[in-house]
Design a protein around this nucleic acid. Structure first.
Lengths: 229, 229
DNA sequence: TCCCGGGTGATTGCATGCAAGTTAGGGGTC
DNA sequence: GACCCCTAACTTGCATGCAATCACCCGGGA
């Protein structure tokens, strides 16, 4: 018996989608009346949605000054990776004893598919990698069956960071990243949580290096992403 | 140039305080009109505050059915401790190289004061322990200077759990807990992050055992805290 | 006695109105 | 020409009104 979503929920999800897809760039102004008109609702559910997204860290609100899509510094980006590097290995280790053979096969299929579309050559499609990667990590987190850890992780990963991922990977880092996925599957097959944890730790460290380097290139170390300074 | 807080912010903070102090028990109904009247504002800021506190996990809202103070199962309680046992040791280790002598002295003073009011005998005052403990941990988290990890921790610790802490400690666990604080100070003095991390890990494990035991006693393993079943 | 259905009072969800605060632009002064 | 102040349009913050939904209670039937 699923409950019909309220306008505020729809507004919140729509806004989140717009931000995650990049239709609303970091730093973009979010006027209440403008959004209300755009989404066909009144200002009230828009306000509620903005407040909620602010709690999630996706938007920033200044009293009497309105809301903007959240921005972040390189330091904050590194902080997010610190958090991921504690939580995701732990979640991965949790997943190991809970993974049934069918689950492992599913993850294996995802990892193989990522090798196909991510490998070098004319068939490389970095955009197709994003949903596959997301599916892999989501599946792993679901297997861990640990809502509290999962919630902490989801709250911290400002998905704007995740979104434009593989465009910034150099070839070696990308190869490493794909290999990590396969190795995690191997660790799951072996039922070795320590192995899985270690690979995931390396996986995050690799991603961290790539993302931090890219962020420094585009924004410099001091300015906020989305600001024009 | 501090900005005067809005009504919604005041409402949110007031509500949070009421919940944390236990004036609003887990499971208690939070009617919008009732709260609005009680706090002297209209329903709008109350709605905003409830939505925000729902995002923080302090209240639970059911569409068209209103909000209640959040409840939790023993499994969720254990999940929170899983999270703490990953985050707090890490934060503690981070704090070690950043702690200046004055900071260490401050923490030492708190730890000593906790021994005074927490030690057995007629001068024992378990209620006084709560703010001291909170100050100790908050100070440590602040020293780590890691907003992302700190935010993840703060978001997860449903403080109703933290609040009524030391009343449930048996004497041995309490002695252990107080000793941990002193030992963390020692590790800080020695500048040894691994030592500090290990002690904090033990500290959380000790607290976890106490809290889970207490929760099982009062609620049974299946029911939710705050429900009368 | 227990279960089920209809009506009613209360509560939430959303829209809108008004006041306070903020930002932008123009005129005046140094 | 640069800076500042003052005004005006706009935006947000909050209050309130109305419709939709829900919980509760009561009566009827098995």
């Amino acid at each position: 018996m699923t409950r019909p979503p309220t306008s505020a929920e729809r507004t919140r999800d729509t806004l989140r989608g717009l931000i995650l897809q990049g239709d609303l760039a970091p730093g973009a102004r979010l006027g209440e009346v403008e959004l209300a008109a755009r989404l066909g609702v009144s200002r009230t559910p828009v306000r509620e949605a903005l407040s909620r997204l602010a709690a999630e860290g996706l938007v920033e609100v200044a009293p009497n000054r309105g809301a903007r899509v959240a921005t972040w510094t390189v330091a904050e980006l590194e902080g997010v990776f610190d958090l991921r590097s504690v939580l995701e290995p732990q979640l991965t280790a949790h997943a190991v004893p809970r993974a049934r053979p069918a689950d492992v096969e599913e993850l294996d299929a995802l990892a193989r598919r990522m090798h196909e579309v991510g490998g070098p050559g004319p068939r490389q499609d970095l955009d197709a990698l994003v949903p596959l990667n997301r599916a892999f990590h989501d599946r792993l987190v679901a297997l861990a069956a640990h809502p509290t850890l999962a919630a902490a992780l989801a709250a911290a990963i400002h998905p704007p960071i995740v979104r434009r991922n593989f465009l910034t990977y150099d070839e070696e880092s990308l190869r490493r990243s794909l290999a990590h996925h396969s190795e995690i599957v191997a660790a799951l097959r072996a039922g070795d949580p320590d192995w899985a944890r270690a690979v995931m730790t390396a996986h995050i460290a690799n991603a961290r290096a790539v993302m931090v380097r890219a962020a420094r290139r585009t924004t410099g170390t001091a300015t906020r992403e989305g600001e024009t300074a």
